[in-house]
Amino acid sequence: MRIAVIDLGTNTFHLLIAETSGQDFKVLYKTNVPVKLGEGRINDNIIIPAAFERGISCLKNFKETIVGFQVERVKATATSAVRSAGNGKKFVAAVKELTEIEIEILSGEEEAALIYEGVKLSGAIEDLSLIMDIGGGSVEFILCDTEKLIWKKSYNIGAARLMQRFFKSDPISDQDKNEILVHIQEALTDLFDVCELHQPKTLIGSAGAFETFAELVSAEKNKMIDVATVKSYPFNFDEYIALSIKLINSTHQQRVEMPGIIPLRVDLIVIAALITNFVLGRLKINQLRLSTYDLKMGILANQIQRY
């Protein structure tokens, strides 16, 4: 059976098409489009008209691709930007009317559970770990080991939200950084409490910004990894820390010129580095790993199990 998975993220819309046979699958097609659905007013909980239209246009193109691949089942899900927007349901209705694609709006808890399923599929979970998925609208944390999910929660501290609210300088000023870190500290109190109890050994970054970190670290060693083909990548911790400090201290133009940063992520990567470093430091974790499998792979795994 051919299954199409559509993930409507706050910054990026993803389409994955896979051929399934029993529990096995082969990815036939994969793309992502920087729709920036949360542009401008994500903290006002609204999808602005230009972003609304970009989203519709992208999904019309996705529909043409899905038809071309003769897909039998389509599963489309939306996360933080649509979930929190006052006109999110209007967007979902417009998509249904114009493309016949039905979108399920995931709760933060559902999103976290599916991220766990995707990361588990990658083989990245080798010990007691904390998974972190940095989206544009929300950040999901999942505490787990090789056998089970222990705890999960979604927080509205996504990179686009923090950037629109706090990132006002170039390079980012100490004041902007401190305001972001105070906000994160206040938001993540219960995460730190549960991790104090369980003491996770490894932080696993789910795709997105962590793929950029991996590409930048490997590029500096002239050993560029292909995130399209690897499932998991263990960071050298010191190399990651050196890179993250370089990113945080850099100007917008310096980041533009770094090979490995896609245009969408040039400024968002600074926020991602700040969040990651704060969590690593606060929890005293010194092992970091990338899982290139994320929410959409979790959705695919879920669909395979159902059908």
Results as ranks from 00 to 15, higher is better:
residue 9 G to I: 02
residue 15 L to A: 02
residue 23 Q to M: 13
residue 23 Q to A: 13
residue 28 L to V: 11
residue 32 N to R: 14
residue 42 I to S: 10
residue 52 F to Q: 06
residue 62 F to V: 03
residue 63 K to S: 13
residue 72 E to Y: 13
residue 74 V to A: 03
residue 78 A to I: 11
residue 80 S to L: 01
residue 84 S to H: 14
residue 92 V to D: 07
residue 93 A to K: 09
residue 98 L to K: 15
residue 102 E to A: 10
residue 103 I to S: 01
residue 104 E to S: 15
residue 108 G to S: 02
residue 109 E to I: 15
residue 109 E to S: 14
residue 112 A to D: 10
residue 119 V to C: 06
residue 119 V to F: 08
residue 121 L to Y: 03
residue 124 A to C: 02
residue 125 I to E: 06
residue 132 M to Y: 02
residue 142 I to E: 00
residue 143 L to R: 05
residue 144 C to P: 00
residue 148 K to S: 15
residue 149 L to Q: 10
residue 151 W to T: 00
residue 152 K to Y: 12
residue 158 G to R: 02
residue 166 F to C: 11
residue 174 D to Q: 05
residue 178 N to K: 11
residue 178 N to D: 07
residue 179 E to A: 07
residue 184 I to W: 03
residue 185 Q to Y: 11
residue 189 T to F: 13
residue 196 E to I: 01
residue 198 H to S: 01
residue 204 I to H: 06
residue 219 A to C: 12
residue 220 E to T: 10
residue 221 K to I: 06
residue 222 N to I: 13
residue 229 T to L: 11
residue 230 V to L: 15
residue 235 F to N: 08
residue 239 E to R: 03
residue 241 I to A: 11
residue 246 K to E: 09
residue 248 I to L: 02
residue 251 T to V: 04
residue 252 H to Y: 15
residue 258 M to N: 04
residue 265 R to H: 08
residue 266 V to N: 01
residue 270 V to A: 01
residue 270 V to N: 03
residue 272 A to S: 10
residue 282 R to F: 00
residue 283 L to C: 09
residue 287 Q to Y: 14
residue 296 K to W: 06
residue 296 K to E: 12
